[in-house]
């Protein structure tokens, strides 16, 4: 089952970050969020917002594209920031011990999470960031449940 739980229009990075903070409240204290959005849509910015809400310094949140997983454990709950941009098949997701992270206390945020969307077992939040203009973004958050 899918339902839209949040819809926002953003005109600046700061606003996208604020949506990330709202998102953190929907997820707290434990949950999975998959982020979809083209290059430069603001997926990492959104995760910076989640970090901020968890009292993790957003400046320390960097793109996990190469590292695949960045772990931030100094906040109110841990934040596991992943990026599937470079992954090509589901076995690599499993190999990353993805499901062990999901079982843990804390929030798991996955950039390019739409890549294997049909394979993720709900529940999770699915965020799509649509690029409007240079700064304009349309953000939709869906809750996927069984």
């Amino acid at each position: 089952m899918r339902e839209i739980v949040l819809q926002r229009e953003s005109c600046a990075e700061e606003e996208t970050e604020e949506v990330g903070e709202e998102l953190a409240r929907l997820l707290f204290p434990k949950g999975l969020v998959l982020l979809e959005g083209g290059l430069g849509a603001g997926k990492t910015v959104m995760v910076k917002g989640i970090a901020k809400a968890l009292r993790i310094n957003p400046q320390e949140v960097r793109s996990p594209t190469f590292n695949l997983i960045n772990e931030y454990t100094c906040g109110t709950v841990p934040l596991y920031h992943m990026d599937f941009y470079r992954l090509e098949n589901w076995s690599e997701v499993i190999d990353l011990q993805f499901f062990e992270y999901v079982e843990r206390e804390g929030i798991v945020a996955v950039e390019w999470g739409d890549k294997f969307l049909s394979l993720f077992p709900p529940p999770f939040l699915f965020v799509s960031i649509l690029i409007g203009g240079e700064k304009e973004r349309k953000i939709t958050v869906e809750r996927w449940s069984e």
């Binding site: 960097r62 594209t65 190469f66 941009y85």
Partner: peptide, 18 residues
């Protein structure tokens, strides 16, 4: 100093792939 978002090489790879 360090990057606050993408690493330099990552920007190269993403631009090339795009």
């Amino acid at each position: 100093g360090g990057t606050r978002d993408d690493a330099a090489g990552e920007a190269y790879d993403k631009v090339a792939k795009f």
